[in-house]
Each structure stands twice: as C-alpha cells, then as structure tokens.
Design a protein around this nucleic acid. Structure first.
Length: 447
RNA sequence: GGUCCCAUCGUCCAGCGGUCUAGGACACCGCCCUUUCAAGGCGGCGACACGAGUUCGAACCUCGUUGGGACCGCCA
C-alpha cells in the first residue's frame, strides 16, 4: 500500500451562493478526505474577474460551514500549498504557459495563449465511478462543426482559463483525487492533454452523478431553492441536508438511511457511488428532516426553533427555557421542519394566535352549559397533572352521560386554537392551571 | 448536429450469474392504536425500457434499439 495520501479539493467559483449541486460534490470530497484521513482543500476559482465577488466567497464558506464541512487548507486558513485563490496564483499560470510556448506546444494570438490540440492521441479516463472512458484527442476540443479546436489557456485579459488553471493547481497542490460533477467528464480529456504536455502525473478522477430536478433536468434556479441557506430558512437542519445529500448517489448499505456525519464517514466508499443521476425529492428530505428532529437534543431544538417563533411575531423570551423545551418535547414528531414545529406550537408561546383562530362560535348554548359544569369542576382539581385530568374527565363524562370528545375537543380549541395538538391534558398541564383558566374564561367556558 | 454518459417501483437506494415469484425507504392507499393529529404497528399498490446474443442459468456479461441527460465559450 504505497498509495499516496488523499488530498481532495472543492473548487467553487465565487459567482453565486453554494447551491445544492456544489454542496453535493463538496460533501463527497469531504467524505472521502475524512474517510481516508486525508486533506480537504478549498480553492477559490475566481478567474472570472467580471462575476467573482468576495461576498460570494464568504457565502460559499458559510454554506460549507453550515453543512458541517470543514476544510484543512483554504483562502481563510492558509496551508502549505497556498495561496488558495486562483487570482493570486497568476505567476504560476504564466510560468507554465511560457514553458508550453517555449516548447512550441502553444502559441500566442490576440494576446491570448493557445494550446495546440494534438491529434491522434488515444486517451482513457480511468474514472473511479464511471470506469474507463475512451476518447481520441482530436475529439477533446472541437468547434460546433466538429473540427479540431485549439485550447485557450490564457485569456486575452491575462487570466487563465478554467481547464488550464485547474490542471496547474491540482498538480501544484498535489491533489490526488479530482472528485467533481459528471458535467465535467467532457472537460477531462482537455485537461489530460495538458497534463501530458506538461509532463505531469495525473490525479485520479471520480465523477459524481448529477442531481436533477423533478423534470429530470440538471438542478437549477427554476427548480426552487438553490442556495443551501434557503433550506435553513425553510426549517431544514444542516444534519438533514447533509444526510439527504449523501444519499444521492450513495448509500451506506444495510438499509440504513438515517445517519450522522461520523457514521457516514465510517462507511463511505467512492467505489460504492452509483452512476445514475438522482432526482432531488423534497418528500424524502422532509422525512429525513423529521427523523433528525426526533432525535435532536431539546436544548438545541429550542435554540433552533426560537427564531422561527419570533418570525411569527411571538415572544419566546417571555418563557423559561425549560418550559419551551418541554413544549417542544411534547410536540414530538408533529412537524417535519423546524418552521412547522414553530407554527404548530405557537399557542405554547402566546395566547394571541389562539384567539385569532378560534371564537367558540361553534358552541351551542346547551353545550356551553355542559362545558361550564365540567370546567368548573375541572379547574378545581386538587392535582394539576395530565394523568389525573384524564381520569377525572373520563369519570365525569361517564357520570354525566357525555363522551370524552364533548369536553376534550372544546378544551383543545380553547387552549390551542387548533383541531390537532399533542394530548390535550398534557398541553393543559404544561400551560399551567392559571393560563388554562385564562384561556377558558376568554371563551366563556368557565366563569 | 457532434462527442460522451446513463437506464431496477412515481422518487431515493439494495442487488454485483443461480438464494429474485426482485428487497428496503419516501410518497400514496387501507386497517390498528387514539380525546385530535403526528409518531408507531400491520397490510396494499408499485420496477428489472425493448430486442438479440453469451451461458446449464441473466436484473446482473456483450451487442443493438429506444428513451433520458451532460458537454461542445478567451464561464467555471
């Protein structure tokens, strides 16, 4: 086993936020680096001076952090192979372009440096995922009419092109595996030609299947949420998005679908990644999110739901942390996103949304009479505990020829303003006797 | 148009020549549980694109057809 250390990189261009496709390839690179105890490198490909911005660079880094993907070398943390922004590596690109020029493998034209595409060379991409892909060098770069086209390596503005910079950097940064989207397969032959011309050893390639929208087309803005942060705003946990994305093109086997980062790292294998493109399915994401929500620590859950309560105009700070955590625990699996959780539990935070939703107009005078009798006794129970409340309610109904629903449903409406909620008596217990009294009195269910 | 890639339930994955009358999960539909809704339990619906080979035997190998996709910028 003399295989060299794993060094992989995620190389986004700062021309937009971190989107789902980028997050997916970053994730797989990270998984492979962590699995093999190697290094995950972040390299910013900002050679498009027009569209690249420092803001986007920050957004991308924030997106990676949000997903829990940490890098060992990058523009912010540095490293032995820096700098990590292509715009800061110009001398390197010039140096090798000079070399190619000297060797007659490239020529100048309109201020640009252009590499002569060789003809008659058989290339084979030994892809870790797709297997061997064979192609002739003259097919590597062509015009629309199919004629051979030379490859621009330095643009007129002095900036290197993607296909050239990526080769120089992957070599200079000692990248051992190039793991990227399948849409780059067609670029690979051009890059291999450059490696050959420069006399460099090639890294190993692994192309990942694309992520498609419902229409089976490459995922893009028109498929809805594109930035990973939009998922945060919709109430998805980073752990869930990580889990869900890892499941696109790969599975740990054994029927396991819900896992955390460590578990994913432990069972990840590049060779188990499949070739078929995957459709991004929101239903599955919802399910995965719900599963992660189920096992989430209450302290963390409260912290993450709080902003969503505030967004609804509620004031969670009026309550003790423990009370809010208890409320969330009571909510259980009701809600697939933190946003839903916040909505569905609003009545624990404030009474006002209850009043907005319910006005007791469905209660007939006769029913009200029964309710008043029941609640008068209910409110003066010696012990304010859900178990005894239920026992009391059942006995009372039995004795008065009523069904439990006749009192439980109005109670739920009065307390929550909703037709669904956790068990009413547990809700009542948590809200407390005084608060329940207030709410019942508001609807004139008790004097 | 050219080059390349892909092809198992609607979707995500298992399957890597025989144990497949193809398994799990999501979604969907029933039933159970129950003061409601989730959750949970049980069950149902539902796929190897097609055609030739190879082989004693093919979802798995080969070829073709069909269907889908990606790429063909001095963008990355």
């Amino acid at each position: 086993m003399t295989e060299k250390n794993v060094r992989v990189r995620f190389a986004p261009s700062p021309t937009g936020a971190l989107h789902i496709g980028g997050a997916h390839t970053a994730l797989f690179n990270w998984l492979w680096a962590r699995r093999r105890g190697g290094a995950f490198i972040l390299r910013v490909e900002d050679t498009d001076a027009e569209r690249s911005t420092a803001e986007y660079e920050d957004t991308i880094m924030d997106g990676l952090k949000w997903l829990g993907l940490d890098w060992d070398e990058g523009p912010d943390v540095g490293g032995a192979f820096g700098p990590y922004r292509q715009s800061e590596r110009m001398d390197l690109y010039r140096k090798y372009a000079e070399q190619l020029l000297d060797e007659g493998k490239a020529y100048r034209e309109d201020g640009a440096v252009i590499f002569r595409t060789p003809v008659g060379v058989s290339l084979v991409i030994e892809d870790e995922i797709y297997g061997d892909i064979k192609i002739q060098s003259e097919k590597a770069s062509v015009n629309q009419d199919g004629s051979v086209k030379d490859i621009v390596i330095i643009k007129r503005d002095g900036m290197p092109t993607y296909n050239y910079a990526v080769v120089v950097d992957d070599h200079a940064m000692d990248i051992s595996w190039v793991i990227r989207g399948e849409d780059h397969i067609s670029n690979t032959p051009k890059q291999m030609l450059l490696y050959r011309a420069l006399g460099w050893e090639m890294p190993r390639f692994a192309h990942l299947p694309m992520i498609l929208g419902k229409d089976k087309k490459k995922l893009s803005k028109r498929h809805g949420a594109t930035s990973v942060f939009e998922y945060n705003d919709m109430g998805y946990l980073p752990d869930s998005v990580f889990n869900f994305l890892a499941l696109l093109g790969w599975s740990p086997g054994g029927g396991i679908e819900i896992f955390d980062r460590d578990e994913a790292v432990r069972s990840f294998e590049l060779s188990k990644v499949i070739k078929k493109p995957a459709v991004f399915d929101m239903d599955k994401l919802n399910y995965v999110n719900q599963e992660h929500l189920k096992t989430m620590d209450p302290v963390l859950k409260k912290r993450i739901v709080e902003p969503f309560w505030r967004e609804l105009g509620l004031k969670p700070e009026r309550h003790a942390d423990q009370y809010l955590m208890d409320a969330l625990t009571l909510m259980g699996a009701r809600g697939r996103t933190t946003k839903e959780l916040a909505e569905f539990s609003d009545y624990f935070v404030d009474f006002s949304p209850v009043k907005e939703r319910y006005d007791a107009s469905d209660i007939t005078p006769e029913q009200r009479g029964t309710l008043k009798k029941f609640f008068a006794a209910f409110m003066s129970m010696p012990e304010w505990e859900s178990g005894s409340m239920e026992a009391f309610a059942r006995n009372w109904c039995e004795a008065n020829g009523a069904s439990l629903k006749e009192v439980a449903l109005p109670l739920r409406w009065a307390l929550t303003g909703r037709k669904v909620s956790p068990g009413v008596f547990e809700v009542a217990q948590l809200l407390g006797r005084d608060e329940c009294g207030t709410r019942l009195k508001h609807f004139d269910f008790v004097d």
